[in-house]
């Protein structure tokens, strides 16, 4: 092709070699890049610290998880050991949080009870995310008939009052930890499906997905490399909020006597015991400790989820 770029005329009618000024664009840009690392103001905003509260919350969740995991290794009395010599004892060196009306150590019961809350909370959301999240990811990306069918199905399921269904199934099927986790997990599928689908759909039409396609990427590769990394932060943030919701649900079931069978402690059934047999007036600690533990755990999980969501929303806002 002919090239007339060797010499060109400037506006003022004099001639100059092209590359002294116009051809420098690329190089000059590099020079500027080296001078300043170009963090945009918005980026600085997205990177602002998560705050002390976030770390306190994370610390509390971490502590609860750690204690629940290593409960067997801790110098704690058996949570179901009834010591009639020490009934309704207040907090002391022997029993840091005191004992209940059957002389069981409350700290031990709460730590073992945390296992139930945590397993049900994270387990159920894990199940829900594995099924609902995966379906949502594919449904949002693929679209078409599959999406229409799954979307309609999720609406239908959401129209049932979940708690009533869960109560009925638990009563019918049994009260083991695994069964309760599965039942609640299934109940979370449609909600998690919808959240992940919406996020997946939002990215499926972005230009970078089209670009990947023209580069020859397969659908599987696009889902894993392009869509999933964008969906994960949203899923994690919302999943945490769902965990908190599930812990409350399990607590409610336990309170109604429909969670794991007694005497296995769970925060819900300890609270329930704290309100029965006149314990509320004789020994308010039975109610207070698990309620406080649950309150702090829920507050922390929600706060972590919310802060993560905020951080990702800011970055979303840039798009």
């Amino acid at each position: 092709m002919p090239d007339d770029r060797e010499l060109r005329s400037t506006g003022s009618g004099q001639t100059l070699p092209t590359d002294t000024f116009p051809g420098q664009a690329a190089v000059d840009e590099m020079v500027v890049m080296r001078q300043e690392p170009a963090p945009e103001t918005d980026e600085a905003l997205a990177r602002r610290p998560l705050g002390l509260l976030f770390w306190l919350a994370l610390g509390w969740v971490g502590l609860v998880v750690l204690l629940a995991v290593i409960a067997n290794l801790l110098p704690l009395p058996n949570p179901n050991l009834q010591n009639y010599a020490a009934i309704n004892v207040g907090p002391s060196l022997h029993h840091l949080l005191g004992t209940d009306d059957l002389g069981r150590d409350l700290l031990s019961r709460i730590i073992y009870g945390a296992r139930v809350s945590l397993v049900v909370g994270f387990g159920a959301v894990g199940i829900g995310m594995a099924i609902g999240g995966t379906l949502g990811l594919i449904s949002g990306f693929r679209g078409g008939k599959l999406d229409i069918v799954l979307n309609a199905a999720s609406f239908v399921i959401l129209a049932f009052p979940a708690i009533v269904a869960v109560i009925a199934i638990v009563a019918f099927w049994g009260q083991t930890l695994a069964k309760i986790t599965i039942i609640i997990g299934v109940a979370t599928i449609p909600v998690l499906f919808r959240v992940v689908r919406a996020s997946s759909l939002a990215y499926a039409n972005r230009d970078f997905v089209v670009a990947a396609r023209t580069l020859g990427a397969t659908s599987t590769r696009i889902v894993f490399k392009e869509i999933l990394p964008n969906v994960i932060p949203v899923a994690v943030a919302f999943g945490l909020i769902a965990v908190a919701g599930v812990i409350v649900l399990e607590g409610s079931l336990a309170f109604l006597g429909l969670s794991v069978a007694l005497p296995t402690p769970s925060w819900g059934n300890i609270i329930s015991e704290g309100t029965s047999n006149g314990n509320l007036s004789t020994n308010p600690y039975i109610l207070m400790w698990p309620a406080l533990a649950m309150f702090l755990l829920l507050l922390s999980i929600n706060l972590i989820g919310d802060r993560l969501r905020q951080r990702f929303d800011v970055r979303e806002g840039l798009l």
Partner: peptide, 8 residues
Amino acid sequence: RLRAIGGR
């Protein structure tokens, strides 16, 4: 050819 200003 446009006479672009380099850099930002």
